[in-house]
Amino acid sequence: MSESVVLRTVGGMLFPYILVYGLYVQMHGEIGPGGGFQAGILIAAAFILHSLLFSPQGTDRLLPSRLVDIAMCSGVLLYIGTGVLCLLMGGYFLDYSVLIPSDPAYAEALGMTLVEIGVGLTVASVILTMVRKIRGEAT
């Protein structure tokens, strides 16, 4: 926990903006530079900043480590699940165009957004877990 009032005030003000920027990079990855991987790291960085400036227990209350573990698994499941859903809809594995038969081009973009969210969830929670475990915070 940081003793400096300036650091804690500015960091606390920055925290929501980093989160929103991470979400923007996540959802904007199909249009501009970015995507799930970068967004995941940005979102993890927001929580790491929070735990560096305030107490690790506070961050743990904000985002319990059990929830991080669940997000880690559900990200991979979302990616593979999208592929399996394409199989069930009658296409190839990860062939998103079958998701919406009436508009295959839009379905491709939708499938890509879904798997990018999966990548983002996994990357964010793995990076957060890594830093927490190495610093010996979360139990």
């Binding site: 199909e30 995507g35 081009a105 839009y106 491709e108 973009a109 890509m112």
Partner: peptide, 16 residues
């Protein structure tokens, strides 16, 4: 392929 929904080719290559 993506009906101009995905202008960023890098993302298109990576995820599709």
């Amino acid at each position: 392929d993506f009906g101009d929904h995905v202008p960023n080719t890098v993302t298109a290559v990576l995820t599709a």
